[in-house]
């Protein structure tokens, strides 16, 4: 399996050297090719992979990462980074679980907790953006700090316990309930992807995100309100984290401070593997969708193929490097850092 990946990488390198439109097209479709290739390989090892039940399971597993990635992608396209996702999700998940019927507070506003979580998420996101822009603190530090503060706040509120959700309709509508045998979370994630795509393609903010991520000075010269756009984009990202928080709480039926552990790393891996450049300006929310599925299919597939746990991490690492190598136009990079 490694040889196949590496072989692919080498061919692409040759293509890139040959240059031309073909290699450009290839780079655009490389993440899809990686995903399809992975599916075929895994399916050859274990035909169960292609079963309908497994697809539903993978979609279900992908739902929350998809929602998170929609938010992080915008920030990365803008040339910034958002490391606050885990903290914001924790706050929102805890808030959502405390707003529906639960064993911690007497509040029970049912599904209204979802817009509430989204609102809280976007407020924290706006705060991220505001601090980043107004105090000129790099987004890396601002959001890192905000993420820790979020987990700290969730911890402080709960004091180490968990909130158990007793509102079963909340869990049904957001996670467990099924329509056409597909869990509710998958539909919600689907809507989140569509909303993100519309923001990207059909709004001014969407255009400006690319402009700022490509060349901030030019964007400023073109009259784009760069600072305001940055703040709004962090707010949009926060809204997606808020939704992800509500979905997380519904999925496990509990809210606690560590509910989103390791989500951020998965999200950024998926975004990069999907072909969105950390340098900004290049990529798309659709790339991130592909990236999420690559990561999910890989995790699922390695268990299906019975790959030794010790080897799994190595395969994951190699895949990330290979996927980035395929998708990136390195000939344009002067300095690699």
């Amino acid at each position: 399996m490694y040889q196949m990946f590496l072989g692919g990488a080498l061919r692409v390198k040759a293509a890139a050297l040959a240059g031309g439109a073909w290699s450009k097209q290839w780079r655009r479709w490389a993440p899809v090719a990686v995903l399809v290739g992975l599916c075929i390989i895994i399916g050859l090892f274990n035909p169960n992979f292609f079963g309908g039940a497994n697809f539903v399971r993978m979609l279900n597993t992908a739902a929350i990462p998809l929602v998170i990635c929609m938010g992080v992608t915008f920030v990365i396209l803008m040339g910034s980074i958002d490391l606050s996702a885990e903290g914001v999700i924790a706050i929102c998940a805890v808030a959502a679980s405390m707003l529906v019927a639960n064993d911690f507070t007497g509040i029970a506003i049912g599904l209204f907790s979802v817009p509430a979580a989204i609102l809280i998420g976007s407020l924290v996101g706006l705060l991220n953006g505001f601090i980043h822009v107004k105090f000129r603190i790099p987004s890396f530090m601002t959001t890192l700090g905000m993420g820790f503060a979020g987990i700290g706040l969730a911890t402080a509120i709960l004091g180490g316990v968990m909130v158990r959700i007793s509102d079963s309709s909340f869990r049904d509508y957001l996670s467990l309930g099924r329509v056409f045998d597909i869990p509710a979370a998958v539909y919600i994630a689907g809507v989140a992807v569509i909303v993100a795509y519309v923001i990207q393609e059909r709004t001014r903010i969407g255009r400006w995100v690319y402009a700022i991520g490509t060349d901030e000075a030019t964007a400023r010269n073109a009259g784009i309100p760069v600072d305001r756009t940055r703040i709004i984009v962090f707010g949009i990202a926060g809204a997606f984290y808020g939704l992800a928080g509500a979905l997380s709480a519904a999925q496990i039926g509990r809210g606690h401070a560590l509910i989103s552990q390791d989500r951020l790393f998965t999200a950024i891996t998926a975004i990069v593997v999907g072909g969105t450049a950390l340098s900004g300006g290049v990529g798309s929310v659709l790339n991130s969708v592909i990236g999420v599925f690559i990561v999910i299919v890989l995790t699922n597939g390695m268990v299906l193929m019975g790959i030794e746990p010790y080897v799994q991490k190595g395969v994951q690492g190699l895949l990330i490097i290979a996927a980035v190598a395929l998708a990136l136009d390195r000939s344009r990079l002067d300095v690699v850092k």
């Binding site: 255009r207 400006w208 060349d215 030019t218 964007a219 073109a222 009259g223 784009i224 300006g281």
Partner: peptide, 15 residues
């Protein structure tokens, strides 16, 4: 000052 990641139309009307 043309941005390579935007389309021709998007560049012309940027901002």
């Amino acid at each position: 000052s043309v941005l390579p990641t935007l389309t021709v139309a998007e560049n012309i009307f940027l901002g």
